[in-house]
Amino acid sequence: MRSNWWKILCVVLLAYAIIGGLLLPVPARHILNETIRNLYFHVPMWFGMMLLFGISFYHSLMYLRKQDMNYDIKAVAFLKIGVLFSCLGMLTGMEWAKYTWGEPWSNDPKQLATAICMLSYFAYLILRGGIKDEEKRAKISAVYNVFAFAMMIPLLFVLPRLVDSLHPGNGGNPGFNSYDLDSRMRLVFYPAVIGWFLLGYWISTLHVRINQINHKRDNTF
């Protein structure tokens, strides 16, 4: 992915998502009103986060198989940007929840799941910070990343069974897909998802390249 076309695409899509997202007409919904526009910013954060964590998981697996330092550098970079996305998603979600559900934190399973994801990936960063030797750090953190990711996936499916959800499409609430997310919104929503994900990927690759240079020059990063 050294070429430039996808970076240009990313900028174009995001410009479209921001301008179109704020200006294009949206369906008028009770309670939601204009906050429905947050859909273009909040939901793509989650898609981006899951994809970035998934890519990081893949690189950790590859590190365990090949023991190549490049995989470790990539795993950390994607994971860090994933954590950034999860923080942004949490902030935009809490802001949205304050207007629609009445309070920023309402024990929603998706909120809980994200909080758990964030905690365990913060723990990953702390684990890395505690180990000096690089080979060892790479190996141990790869093992933890694989373990945490593989354990998280089933848990994320179990959680909604335990707590009622306020999110659309759960616990008797109508989903966006049924009538809210009409064709006008889809026109902005899908480009926004792709645009935000490409932005996350772009930031991660920059991080990877900086760390690769550091690794080559000082043998550390």
């Binding site: 758990i116 365990s120 933890y144 945490a148 354990m151 959680l159």
Partner: peptide, 8 residues
């Protein structure tokens, strides 16, 4: 490391 994983 463990607390987030065992909360669920």
């Amino acid at each position: 490391l463990g607390f987030p994983l065992v909360i669920p």
